[in-house]
Amino acid sequence: MTKVDRPQAAATVFGERVEVAERFVALLAEHGVARGLIGPREVDRLWDRHVLNSAVLAEGVPTGARVVDVGSGAGLPGVPLAIARPDLNVTLVEPMARRVAWLDEVVETLALTTVTVVRGRAEEPAVRSRVLGAEVVTARAVAPLAKLSGWCLPLVRQGGLLIALKGASAAEEIDRDREAIAALGGGEPRLETYGGAVLDMPTTAVLIERVRSTAVGRERPRRTRKDQGAHRG
């Protein structure tokens, strides 16, 4: 396997499972570029920008939680989170067959017994039926906040959280999409940072609690038979 130098922070974040994390980084370094999972310039930044950046989300996830990682791709943030927190039950949701094949290989190679891979899109009924009721749903660089909330909040149980990893645009997205998020059953979005004690650049995330259930079309008024008849002919 390709070796990428391990930073000191890795031992703090992953503890006794740091060697498992190191194997995951080596797999990404060896196969990630060729399989279209990461860009060529990302190999030297795998630890700080991708793996540690993902794993520090563990600070915000309750003990023993069911976690669904939407659009998992290379396994970020779901795989580092599962390595750092073996108490979690993590489901990786990914629509692309080649990435699903990669995730299956990672789960088997690293013996991640608490991780399941599901192929499909979060908005598909068959996928939703398998992963409904998660305490936490995560997503990293998947879509703008309003669209992401539409995909992810239905998977979150009431009182649970969507944790969306975001960059510099996070505050702007919150201001723009606040009303759409509320309409989807989400509470007031809030910014949170993780890993401040161990990372030079802490991870920024938007947290959205699911505060109520919604049903598509529930607010749409029903037409009476009289109404329907008025539109015939």
Rank of each mutant, 00 (worst) to 15 (best):
E108L: 12
G120A: 14
G186H: 00
T204S: 09
R17W: 08
G60M: 10
S129R: 15
V118Y: 14
R232Q: 14
A58E: 09
L27V: 07
H50M: 00
I38N: 07
D5L: 13
E30N: 11
V51L: 07
E192D: 11
R222H: 15
P144A: 06
G159P: 07
T203R: 08
A26K: 09
L153M: 01
V198R: 08
R225D: 13
A143P: 07
V4G: 06
T116G: 12
R218W: 12
A11F: 07
L57H: 01
G196Q: 10
T109F: 11
A183R: 10
D227Q: 14
W151L: 02
T2E: 14
P95K: 03
L37M: 08
R41A: 08
P40T: 04
L155D: 01
E172H: 11
D175H: 14
G229K: 14
L153I: 04
A146F: 02
P7M: 05
N53K: 07
D5Q: 14
G73K: 04
V61M: 04
R99H: 06
A26L: 11
V90K: 02
M1P: 11
T116C: 13
Y194H: 13
P189T: 04
A101Q: 05
L27H: 09
A143E: 01
L207F: 15
V43Q: 05
G185I: 03
P202L: 08
T204C: 06
Q158A: 10
R178E: 09
A97C: 08
V216I: 07
A74T: 04
R222M: 11
T193R: 12
G167V: 05
V33I: 13
A170R: 02
V20N: 09
N53W: 03
A82G: 01
I83D: 03
L153F: 04
V13L: 02
R99F: 05
R220L: 13
E16I: 10
P125K: 09
G133S: 03
E192F: 08
P40E: 03
E94S: 01
L132A: 15
A182W: 12
H50K: 02
A11K: 04
L92M: 01
R49Q: 02
S149L: 03
G78K: 05
V118L: 15
R212S: 12
G160W: 06
G195C: 06
